[in-house]
Amino acid sequence: MQQFQIGDPSAVAPARRGVSTLAAELGFDTEDAGRAALVATEIGTNLVKHGGGGELIAQQISRDGHFGLELLGLDKGPGIVDVAKCLRDGYSTSGSPGTGLGAMERLSQRFEIYSRPGHGTAVLAQLWPDSREPPPGRTQVGALVVPKPGEIACGDRYCYHERVEGALVAGIDGLGHGLGAEQAAVEACRIFDVEKHRPTLRLMQTLHEALRPTRGAAVTLLEVDWDAGRITSVGVGNVAAALINGNETKRIATDNGIVGHVISRPRELTHACQPDTVLVLHSDGLTTSWQAARYPGLMQHHAALIAGVLYRDCKRGRDDSLVVVIRRTPS
């Protein structure tokens, strides 16, 4: 993942070069890498012109063994009153040709905007080599993992395994931050990959034994069964989870402790979910004060755009940050 702070026009060119390089590393040919660079340029330019500056995040995405590129543009500017009007070529509020948003939409395999007047704008663009987006699975996932400002190592991680009936996901927050926290989180993900077919309670117990030599971690496991309309959770520590149905936000309880050091007997909890339920999993790098009702219409968007908006508005800025959003792929 690469982050670019876009505060003035001079910051757009380094972001464009960084995105072009990342695209090439992911297997994009020269033409496709140029396409990605153009989208990054448009996002960065809009952040300066319309958002008063903001953040561009570029990261790898994968699906069925194929790798693509995801770009998120996040600002807290004045927002957009009529998104549909702004997507039409020729519409401009700044004297430019007015082709920015329309061009980004054409160049991307997936393009979405969420904006509220007075509350900023978030833009999502996903691009794949040869413009060939792999077919979607049953579960849609969006995630951001960002190290503490000034750090390279990151103690936050997430692990994901798609199942026939749904998915299994783990949110992991290594104790503290820096290299020691990262080592604990990496070991937790390694164990997850080996033991991912086990029930959630057994998996948590296995993680507890495996993390003893590390500084430990907070871990929340969510097992989703879309067919049965059921979510099973096991959580130890302060990785928060919530179920969102419409404007209702239901927090999922976790137990006190540190996986790998001190935990009581973990509880396995069961929760009902609907076909349109959205799950949010995040570390304490984000505040827990957010409510879905404050974001009208957001939960109908792609999971990656939801994750971007929550990260933008809720990050504390003094710790590693993790946010994972899961939803059933819309028909």
Rank of each mutant, 00 (worst) to 15 (best):
W290E: 07
L298H: 08
A293L: 12
A188T: 04
V280M: 06
I258E: 02
G171I: 05
V146M: 11
L269R: 14
E55M: 13
T270P: 00
F4S: 03
G257V: 07
L207C: 03
T99C: 12
L305G: 03
G166S: 05
E248Y: 05
N247K: 08
Q300H: 10
L322G: 03
R132F: 01
P9G: 09
G79A: 13
V262Y: 07
H261N: 11
L203D: 10
E195T: 09
A304R: 05
I231Q: 07
G65K: 08
Y114G: 12
D82R: 15
P9Q: 07
G176F: 01
L203M: 15
T232Q: 12
V234P: 04
R17Q: 15
A36S: 10
G54A: 14
L127H: 03
G98K: 12
A272Q: 13
K148Y: 00
G260L: 01
G7E: 14
S62P: 06
A218R: 02
L72P: 05
T288V: 11
L101C: 14
L305P: 05
S289T: 15
R294A: 14
G216Q: 02
M104A: 14
G142F: 00
I80P: 13
V324S: 01
Q300W: 01
R132V: 03
D130S: 10
F4W: 12
